[in-house]
Design a protein around this nucleic acid. Structure first.
Lengths: 90, 90
DNA sequence: TAGATATTTAGAAATTTATCGAAACAACTA
DNA sequence: TAGTTGTTTCGATAAATTTCTAAATATCTA
């Protein structure tokens, strides 16, 4: 199910860069936006796709909404890729 | 470079299913096409994207063109995914 | 409560992608 | 060499995606 959303989410370089940023630390939507030459609504859209794909969590803290990685889907991705990496043994 | 192509290639369910088929055995374009409710030109297009992403090889043998997995990019993908799977240790 | 800040939602334009039918190309076979 | 089979290329259309501006929502502060 959400594997399809995950692969879609990963197909855009902006979203992969967002995930890379979140790997270092949790960030607000605004902090994330600072790293891209793109309007805030566009950033919001990308974050929303990552959320739908269950690759990030969002949590409001006062005025800000913090985004953080949700690593569960990455475990499924890892399994998927390993099938190809070690195809002769499966 | 080609990582971007690889992620794009993986974003389509048809192409992921093609890779899954090739995991079992090398196949001709026609054999691959039999598994999909789609015209041959469409199949050819998808195979071409997989080739550009360096995820498959193609080799003509007489009248047929055989497709097979090229696992080198999958190794890069594995490294990429592992970063997120084990984010706290990197 | 009014204004300021942070972020999202809505709606539209531009670009990319998926798919098709028709035609072309390549190799085999009679 | 003419016909047949396997596959791709071409050109067009429809659907999906990315991005924008404008407006709305949520929270904080004075």
């Amino acid at each position: 199910m959400s594997m399809n959303h995950a692969f879609k989410a990963l197909s855009d370089p902006t979203r992969r860069k967002m995930l890379d940023l979140l790997r270092e630390k949790d960030m607000t939507a605004g902090e994330i936006a600072e790293h891209f030459a793109m309007t805030k609504p566009s950033i919001s859209h990308h974050l929303n796709l990552l959320k739908q794909a269950e690759m990030v969590f969002d949590e409001r803290k006062g005025q800000n909404i913090y985004y953080s990685l949700n690593t569960t889907v990455f475990q499924d991705l890892l399994k998927w890729v390993i099938q190809f990496h070690a195809k002769e043994e499966s």
